[in-house]
Design a protein around this nucleic acid. Sequence first.
DNA 1: ATCCTCCCCTAC
DNA 2: TAAGGTAGGGGAGGAT
Length: 941
Amino acid sequence: MAFPGGFREYMAVKRRKLEVQGQEIAATGSQSSVLTGLTLYFNGYTGSSDLTMIQFKELVLVHGALVRDKLEPDVTHIIATQMTDSKMRNLRKPVVKPEWLLDSIKRQNLLPWLTYRLYTDIAPSQQTLGSFFSGGTSQSGDQPSSTSTHGGENELITSAEGNLEKQILGTASEKAQVEHVQIEEEAIADEGEGEVESDESESEDVRTRQGADTESEWVKANTCTAPGFLQKFFASSRLHHLSTWKGELRDFVYRQGPRRRMNATTYSKRIIVHVDMDCYFASVALRDRPHLQSSPVVVAHSLGLAGRSTSDVASCNYVARSHGLRNGMSLGRAREICKDLHVLPYEFEKYEACTKALYNVLLRQGDEVEAVSCDEAYVDVTSSIKESGQEIQLAENLRREIFEVTGGCAARSAITCIGPNKLLARMATTRAKPNGVFQVKQEEALQFMEGQLVRDLPGVGWVLADKAAKRNIKTCKELAVLSLPRLQADFGPKTGSMLYNACRGIDMRPLENTPRQSVGAEVNWGIRFTTQDQVEQFIRELSQEINKRMKLASVGGKLLTVKAKKKRYVGEPQKVLGCGDCDNLSKSWNAQNGINSWETIFRESYRLLCELQIEATDIRGVGIHVSKLCSDSLSLPGHPVREQSFLNFEGAAPDAQERNNPPPHKMEDHRKTLDEQKTTLSEYGINPEEIDLDVLKELPEEIQADLLPYLKARESHHRPFQINARAGCSSSSSSISKPNGGQQFDPSYLLPTASQVDPEVMKALPDEIRQDLEKAIGMRRGMAARSISGMRNVPRRGKIHGNKVSPNKGQVQLQSRRQSITCKSIPVPPPSPSLGGQSDFGSVRCMLEDWVSTRLPPTDDDVNAFLRYLESLIDEMELERLETLLKWFFCRVGVESSVINSKGKGNAEWSKVAEMLTTHVNEMVMKKYGCQMKGLGGSQR
DNA sequence: ATCCTCCCCTAC
DNA sequence: TAAGGTAGGGGAGGAT
Ligand SMILES: Nc1ccn([C@H]2C[C@H](O)[C@@H](COP(=O)(O)OP(=O)(O)OP(=O)(O)O)O2)c(=O)n1
Ligand SMILES: [Mg+2]
Ligand SMILES: [Mg+2]
């Protein structure tokens, strides 16, 4: 088989498309979702005078059901008015009268199909719902499958009818949606029975799959060496989707610019709303499967019925959470905890549509928006609140509007929290869930924070929480006892400052709205190489992927970084095809001339990876990142970095134009990195640290627009939660110049000087905090920072508390991180450009000098090598060297020609070479840069 | 001091 | 069986 599983994949995609179409039809016209989750096949239904077959199909479609033209594996029910016994037995699906659907639609309530069975006398002893439910097959007369570990579910037969109905339909819809798993189960059931004849529904899917159903075959088809792996992986990866969406949202919000011209607002007057959808993926799933609302539900790949599944739970609803389930948990564990769990498939298109709707509301309502994720954002609503007391009302309106635009159900889960800063709004979220609003006012902040766990602070994960716990600190109250210098000594200046402020409810960070600074792609699943060639090929594909993403974002870059994971265990990790416990290595390369082709990315990435010296068989993850970004040279000069989002939002903000057409004096910057662009401020004779806002206001509009990004960058850079100078921007002393009269800001002490603090803010702070602050400000210079830990993180010792990558029990610790000297090494390709293994330009010239000096006719191989070298010079934009070399070559050949001329031979050969080189170089330069080399055309012909 | 490289951590 | 991606803040230690 040329492409194992290829047909299956093709069919799955095709079916999914059909399904989407069906749902779109259902979404138009008068409709309901009462039949959602059903996938129907009409067979033996003859229609009637008042309702033709076609009309009937349309009817059920607009009420949420899916209709198949063939008895495909995902069909949940067959609709028929007549059918022979034997046929019905072979169909192996519930056969139900059309009245079931009509009545259900009429009552707007999905009735139990059991009472509408076509014949009630068929194999009555086996016609049990229990077997239907737990057997992993849709056949009515089935025995519970041996794969079912949940025999207890048969008890459902005795449940109340309504509940039972929900369970059944839930199961049906699981099967309907997770196509390949559905097929898998049918295959298992077939083996167990060894009986039933195939009809058309036993499609090629099953046969194809069965043919490839050895364990190694599956693994082979799903590791990185399989054709199409990257595409398939990214298309299926929830985390990839999450990251991609976030990037697009950020970019979109950035392009919108501030929604409203704000009156300068002071910190203490801000009203920040944090909006976060309740169990997002699960909510969207439940919106279209209302009958499952009160059942425990998770979204995951795979049904996890076979064994202890290592598939991740992306999102679980609150019913499931009450059983102890959590996002990110393995499905196997989830199923152990919660026996009657409903597993629903990912529906990325739906999440995307929902997100779009959500953000349209937020962007319309907010003064400013910071995109956090596809289901979450900070919204500054300060200007919407005219007087205090309106906050809750505003939040409820926001919630209602989100509810409406997201199609009802997903929005039922909007959580809105109000606080004077991001931290408090974010912390309040937990109190607002599920489905509510919660407000924390400034004066309540300290008390509110006191009761919080350090672990629950945003920015505190397992590692930090553990570090704090080692000092016997678990709550914010306990954390607040430690002095700022103490925290900074223990956790570093920024982190210490963040902790100091966060546990007091202080967070001065503005809403972030900046363009991206790096582009990357990585894969840490399914990575199993056997040969170095496979590694090379994979890097080639990943490089093309990076190139694609850079083009999409219209950026170039100058720093290339390769990341790799090297396994630290023997055998296989717990997570199927996962990376397991690894050493993480990285190496980067500075491209002076920018990175401008996927070949460059590939060549250098591969070289870097080789330099990391990991055996192909030990690699468990690979990533490529490009940073030090600059605007794409292909895009308009001065064009801001932007992405071609495929999220289409409503009309652009009024000032979007302004951002996309920067004033002409910035045009020449387009090749500079974002960082370097800072230096261009000197064009205005302004030190970026010393922009006075009052002065700024007086500047011409376009210059203001230009300065804005620098201000933003300055505001948000390196200021974790701490009070910063921005607080004073609207007050009379509105200069944001550096403290200490232009002296260097001491980065070890992130507390502001007294003069930096907005007096208004100081006043607004609770007494304790204010005193604490004043004290800290007063003594900031005298503090000697002594570290408790005092040492650098020892690389990879002991367990890291990530949820993701956990070490395997009983795995043997291998050798240390970097390759030991004695080990056999991975061959490292020479850096490009190189000739005969030499990459140093001087060496290359010497070599060429020798070559030309031989006076022998040049061999094809040598000429080709030389040409390839010139080509790589072009690729790397080493145009000066290219010119130097060519000029030298012509000069040299000319000399040799005259010398050799007298001997008769050689001249023609070298001249031909020179001519050929000229042609090719010109061609390549033209192709890459769209113009000819200066002074090259003239030297020939 | 500040920059650079190679990490680690966090969040969704 | 299953899809553990990514951007960005930040720290340690060496080079400058
Ligand atoms: N480990 C995780 C965490 C989240 N997500 C996805 C699924 C979530 O639905 C979505 C949003 O993440 P949230 O942290 O907001 O979680 P939920 O929205 O699911 O739940 P909550 O109600 O706590 O916000 O991101 C994921 O795939 N894996
Ligand atoms: Mg959420
Ligand atoms: Mg969220």
